[in-house]
Amino acid sequence: MRNILLVLSLLLPAALAQAQQPAPLPDARMLVNMPDVPRSVMRADMLDHMAALNEIIGDLAENKFEAAAETAEKRIGQSAMGRNAPMARGQGPGRFMPDTMRQMGWNMHGAASEFAKVAKTGDKTKALAALQQVTASCVACHMAFRTR
């Protein structure tokens, strides 16, 4: 009897904790199917975009407008488009994206190039407003689409 009570006392908290877990919310974003290589290339690009944004914000905080502009253009802007195409071996992520998703990507690259132009003026307020257009593109796409 003692053993049964001991086992129940050990299992009961776990059972209660499991019963109290809310069900995960469904993911309403559109699933975009793409092969592993292009998805990996796109993921690597997005991770680098995040790192670049972090550098840009740091540069703006230190009033290093030229550095922020250079990072934005080279790593996120129109100059960065297709830079990893050789890794995708002709199977770049863009060919698997719905038109809306592809347009969002182009908008993001364009916004980063526009930010670079604005940042070079040294006007921090305008630069931050232009940078927000870059991140708005990221947010819009990530809120609408997923690859897994």
Rank of each mutant, 00 (worst) to 15 (best):
K124P: 04
K126M: 11
Q91L: 07
S113G: 09
T71I: 13
E114W: 02
L6Q: 02
M30A: 14
G82V: 09
D123M: 14
M81R: 15
G82Y: 12
A80K: 02
A136H: 10
E55R: 12
G105P: 00
G92T: 10
P13R: 14
A15F: 10
A111M: 05
R43M: 13
N84P: 04
Q133E: 14
A127I: 03
K124S: 07
M46S: 03
A51S: 11
H109L: 07
A140W: 03
A44D: 04
T100L: 12
P26M: 04
C141W: 06
P38D: 13
M104C: 00
M81C: 02
A72P: 10
A111D: 08
R89Q: 15
M104R: 12
K120T: 08
R2H: 06
V118W: 00
V7A: 13
N33I: 12
E114M: 08
D123W: 15
E55C: 01
C141V: 04
M34P: 00
M42L: 14
E66I: 12
A28Y: 11
S137L: 00
G110E: 13
M42V: 00
H49V: 14
E70L: 11
V134Q: 02
C141P: 03
F96D: 01
D36E: 11
L5Y: 13
P86C: 05
P26H: 02
A85I: 05
T147E: 05
E62C: 07
R75V: 11
M30F: 11
F65N: 02
I57Q: 13
C138Q: 03
C141R: 03
A111V: 06
I76S: 00
L47I: 11
A44F: 04
I56R: 00
S79D: 11
Q103N: 10
A129W: 05
A127R: 02
R2Q: 06
P35L: 08
R43E: 15
I56W: 01
A15H: 02
G94K: 00
N107I: 01
A14Y: 09
D99E: 15
A15Q: 06
P86F: 07
A52C: 07
M30V: 15
D45T: 05
M50W: 12
L5W: 11
L131E: 01
A88H: 01
D123H: 13
L31Y: 09
R29L: 11
A67W: 02
N54I: 06
L53G: 08
A67T: 08
R39G: 04
L60V: 07
T121A: 13
G90V: 01
P35I: 03
A88P: 01
P86W: 07
M101G: 05
A130E: 00
K120D: 03
I56G: 01
H142K: 12
T147P: 00
A85T: 07
K117D: 10
D45R: 03
N3I: 05
E66T: 13
F115L: 01
A111H: 04
K126I: 05
G90P: 01
P98D: 03
Q21Y: 00
M42A: 10
M101V: 08
L131W: 06
H142W: 09
T121N: 11
P35F: 12
R146P: 07
M101S: 14
L131Y: 08
L16N: 04
A88S: 12
K126S: 07
K120I: 04
P26A: 09
K117N: 08
Q18K: 12
L16G: 04
